[in-house]
Structure formats: structure tokens, C-alpha cells
């Protein structure tokens, strides 16, 4: 395979894990809730997908089961943070610890078993014939298309082109005003937080069904935290999040290609590339483009529980 095609292929596959988790986090943060439980949800999703495909060898069933498990844990998290107004950071950390621990315990029975069913590449006619780009972007599995095309477009449309999306953003910016306007703040937050958590678990299932097809404890290896960081880096926009994840995947893959081609750079430095790259991509545009400084960053009510009676 051509070296650039190979680079892009792994970048898309690796970036997809981050993109899916980060899309879930965008939904969650846009309604004003920080979910730091992504790492734990990914672990749960990964182990669920493996466990389910062992009894039902169909990757779609495994993926759906992971979404469902994510939804359930998301509802528990939303109940604590949205309905009972507990501290979001603490609950998120608890969810990460519980998720990774529970996944490790449940996963004991499944470690060392290859995934019984995985998503196979679906080749898009015509588009996959484009030189260099075609094989990397249009000969991937269905989850890649879902993550890079279908979901971001759908979420972008929902958030920025519909009345419902406007309401959603209002809940994240100023829940008091939204409430006064008759938007069901708590219901909105509850369901979008749960949905975001489902996508995070879906990212875990992506990991074990399409990328590294087996379960082992620690398989997520910190990618959940990177997904949370990417959301901030991408300024809470679904399209940007996907591009940021792809960029991150590309720079990571570049580090390995650099080692494989024996560039005269220390491996430790090449391993740092994604983080150095992210820093550059955050700092440089802000310095170069004046306009970037004025862009609104986080939703104004991010991280704050909503109390109707305390204004």
C-alpha cells in the first residue's frame, strides 16, 4: 500500500475512536454538562461489544448493545448531575473510575478472546477509486462513515439549523432564560447527557469491533481524556471536532511512520507530536488571526447545575 494512503487509513481508523467519543461530549457540553466519565464509558462500551458479539456474532448487535449500556450509565450520571445537581466533575471522575473498574471485572471472562465478529470494510463505488484519498476514506467500515460523515452532519444540522437546536444551545448558555421561555431545561439536559454517554460507549465498541478486535484491561489507554480535550480544542462544534480528531489521528500516525522510515528524531519526541501539534494548533491561530480571540468559547452555563428557585 502507498505510504500516504497507509498513513491516512490508520489516521482515519484511530481518529474515529476519538471523533465518536468527542461528538458525544459535544452534545453533552452544549447543554451545559461536563461529562468526565468518557474514559469509563468507553471501557464499558468496549467490553460490552466483545461480550455481546461472543454470543451473537453480529457487530451491529454488539454496537447497539454498547450504545444501550452507555445510555443506561449516562442516565445514572444525568440523574446525579442534572436532577440531583451533584458536582459534575466529581460525578464524572466517579463514572470513569467505576466504568474502568467494572469493565475490568466483567472483562476478565473475555480477555484473550478475539472478537467473534467485526465491522468489515464497505467500499463506496467511484469514490474509492480516487487516488491516494479513495482507499483511505472510502474503503473503511460503516462505523467510520457514521462517525465522520453521517453523525457530524446530523448533529450540526440539529444544533445550528433547527429551533430545537437553538433551544438546546440556550439551555447550555443560560438555563434560567431558557426556562423562562418555556424550554424544559432538566429534560433537555437529562436526555442529551444520556445520549452523549451512549456515543462515548459507542466509541469503545468502535475500538473493539473495528480497530483492535479483542478486549484487554486498559485498552482505552487514556483516549477518553483526549476526546474531552478535543472538544475544547474544537470549540464545541461537531464539524470541528471531527476534523480535530482526524488531525490528531494523523499526527499520531505520522509519529509511527516517522519511526518506521527512520527519521533522525528521537522516538520519545515523535511520541510527543500529537500533543505538540495540538498546542501549536491552539496557539498559532489565536496569535495570527485577531478574530479567533473573540470567538465565544465554552457555553456560558457549562458545569453549573441549574436551580430553578435560585436566581
Amino acid at each position: 500500500m502507498d505510504i500516504i494512503t497507509g498513513l491516512l487509513t490508520t489516521a482515519v481508523l484511530a481518529g474515529g475512536v476519538l471523533a465518536l467519543a468527542a461528538l458525544g461530549e459535544v452534545i453533552c457540553q452544549r447543554v451545559g454538562v461536563v461529562n468526565l466519565g468518557v474514559e469509563g464509558l468507553m471501557a464499558l462500551g468496549a467490553v460490552t461489544a466483545i461480550a455481546v458479539t461472543i454470543s451473537v456474532p453480529n457487530p451491529s448487535v454488539g454496537f447497539a448493545a454498547a450504545l444501550l449500556v452507555g445510555l443506561c450509565f449516562g442516565m445514572v450520571f444525568a440523574m446525579a448531575t442534572v436532577l440531583f445537581r451533584a458536582n459534575q466533575v466529581l460525578c464524572g471522575l466517579a463514572l470513569t473510575l467505576m466504568g474502568t473498574g467494572l469493565a475490568a471485572t466483567v472483562g476478565r471472562a473475555f480477555s484473550g478472546m478475539p472478537a467473534k465478529a467485526t465491522f468489515q470494510p464497505v467500499i463506496v463505488p467511484y469514490l474509492s477509486d480516487i487516488p491516494i484519498l479513495g482507499p483511505a476514506f472510502f474503503s473503511q467500515n460503516i462505523l467510520v462513515y457514521l462517525t465522520f460523515i453521517i453523525l457530524p452532519v446530523a448533529i450540526h444540522y440539529l444544533m445550528f439549523k433547527t429551533r430545537h437546536g437553538l433551544n438546546m444551545r440556550a439551555v447550555g448558555e443560560n438555563p434560567g432564560a431558557a426556562d423562562a421561555a418555556g424550554i424544559p431545561v432538566l429534560a433537555m439536559r437529562f436526555w442529551y447527557v444520556s445520549l452523549g454517554a451512549a456515543l462515548a460507549a459507542g466509541a469503545g465498541a468502535y475500538l473493539t469491533l473495528a480497530f483492535v478486535p479483542s478486549w484487554s484491561d486498559g485498552i482505552v489507554a487514556g483516549r477518553g481524556w483526549i476526546a474531552v480535550a478535543l472538544v475544547i480544542f474544537a470549540r464545541y462544534r461537531p464539524m470541528n471536532v471531527v476534523m480535530a480528531a482526524l488531525l490528531f489521528g494523523l499526527i499520531t500516525a505520522l509519529g509511527y511512520v516517522g519511526q518506521a522510515r527512520n527519521w533522525p528524531v528521537a522516538p520519545a519526541l515523535l511520541g510527543m507530536l500529537p500533543y505538540l501539534g495540538t498546542l501549536c494548533f491552539i496557539i498559532v491561530p489565536v496569535i495570527v488571526l485577531r478574530r479567533m480571540r473573540q470567538l465565544p468559547a465554552a457555553p456560558a452555563a457549562l458545569g453549573l447545575p441549574y436551580f430553578r428557585d435560585v436566581r
Binding site: 497507509g6 484511530a14 475500538l207 483492535v212 479483542s214 484487554s216 499520531t252 500516525a253 509511527y256 511512520v257
Partner: peptide, 12 residues
């Protein structure tokens, strides 16, 4: 231990 990293390194 990093299956994702080993996977990418192998592809490269």
C-alpha cells in the same frame, strides 16, 4: 501496553 499504539505501529 497500548494495543491502539501497537496496531498503528504495525500498520506503519
Amino acid at each position: 501496553f497500548d494495543p491502539q499504539g501497537a496496531n498503528q505501529a504495525a500498520s506503519a
